[in-house]
Amino acid sequence: MNSILECSHVNKRFGRKEVLHDVNIQIEPGHIIGLLGPNGSGKTTLIKLACGLLTPSEGDIRILGEPAGPSSKLKIAYLPDKSCLSDWMKVSQIVDMFHDFYSNFDRIKAYEMLGRLDIDPKLKLKTLSKGTKEKVQLILVMSRKADLYLLDEPIGGVDPAARDYILQTILTNYNEEGSILISTHLIADVEQVLDRVIFLKEGRVVLDSSVDDIRIQNRKSVDELFREVFSC
């Protein structure tokens, strides 16, 4: 089976600081993978490298066999850990922009999701609360039929009710022929939806295993194993 994402011997340094060290990952279609690790473990860096927003210091990253470029960006739907939308734009303008650029963007689906949250598309983004902006960003990402969804801390910094909405939106809207990579340190909230987990510790992959294997072999939940691996 062709890998959707393939990282081979990836290193990333910022100045003298090594943020990722010899990372090797393969992601096949049809999986929901948790990229788990404490703050500063390199999760965001790895996702940005996969998106082509960072250039690896060494190693190779391929999306469906191709290096990062315009065609790989059509295959990836990326949710950054911060707002990247222009505040002066109306929600409808942003939806139109996504429709213009991404052939796999479903405008009807986006408006349906906005409607369910009572978000008025005529409103400018700067008039929305931080939480609503994050939901708009999530709706835009999940309205695409992408091969790989890279979601960076989608439930970080939101209340438990919003977490449920976010996870529900992800699970009911993603392209099931593709895969999702979710980075988070809130394991208990996402554990039930994950097929596989990758533990990152100080820029190194310390565990890459299916959730079932962890439960059977270690007789522990992912959350328990995470606490054990990353105990201070």
């Binding site: 082509g52 927003l53 960006k73």
Partner: peptide, 13 residues
């Protein structure tokens, strides 16, 4: 800056 995340994720060179 922040909006660069969106710009550089557009499927264009």
């Amino acid at each position: 800056s922040d909006q660069a995340y969106l710009t550089h994720m557009l499927p264009v060179s």
